[in-house]
């Protein structure tokens, strides 16, 4: 699979699990896209641990360090898996993985060079020393526990937006 095919397959599979997708070239378009997604009144949590996270323009008066009081989480995820359309977050580097779980809307940025083809590519790299937490997130939170009626948004986010950023 070429790089482009891997990225396309990833975004197709993300879209197939009821998430919104976008692909942008360079960082110029990212700020506007995020501003549109955040809207006018949400409280935003952003860990600002990566260079990309630190470069995002956010409405400073509505930014919080406390993810339990935020309605949106904007973060760069660690990796993507094309086979399943999964986003990967890990606890490495002091990241609070649950920060992307508690707010109602998760906006995930992913550098396209962090997208791998298959689950095997991803899971073969850890050996005996994985970080404390590795979480795969595939689509928004869901349940079908009442009459098997699919309901989006239970304990985790009801809305997931994925922006693939190509440097």
């Amino acid at each position: 699979m070429t790089r482009d095919e891997t990225i396309d397959r990833f975004l197709e599979n993300v879209a197939a699990v009821a998430a919104e997708t976008a692909r942008v070239r360079g960082r110029a378009g990212v700020d506007r896209m995020i501003a549109d997604l955040i809207g006018g009144d949400s409280v935003v949590y952003c860990p600002r641990l990566t260079e990309l996270e630190r470069s995002i323009a956010l409405p400073e008066d509505r930014v919080t360090d406390d993810y339990t009081s935020a309605s949106v989480c904007v973060e760069e995820v660690f990796a993507g898996i094309a086979e399943t359309g999964s986003l990967v977050s890990t606890s490495a580097g002091g990241r609070a993985v649950q920060g992307g779980l508690v707010p109602q809307h998760h906006i995930a940025l992913i550098a396209t060079d962090r997208i791998v083809e298959t689950l095997d590519h991803f899971f073969s790299q850890w050996g005996d020393g994985p970080p404390t937490n590795i979480t795969l997130e595939t689509g928004p939170s869901r349940t079908a526990d009442i009459e098997l009626t699919l309901t989006i948004g239970v304990h985790g986010p009801g809305r997931l937006s994925v922006i693939a950023v190509e440097e």
Binding site: S91, N133, L136, E137, T138
Partner: peptide, 20 residues
């Protein structure tokens, strides 16, 4: 094809961690 979430947990929170 996969559940919405899959967590791999290795030990409790360690020095410098903010998860677990």
């Amino acid at each position: 094809a996969i559940t919405s979430y899959l967590s791999v947990i290795t030990g409790p929170r360690k020095l410098g961690d903010r998860t677990g």
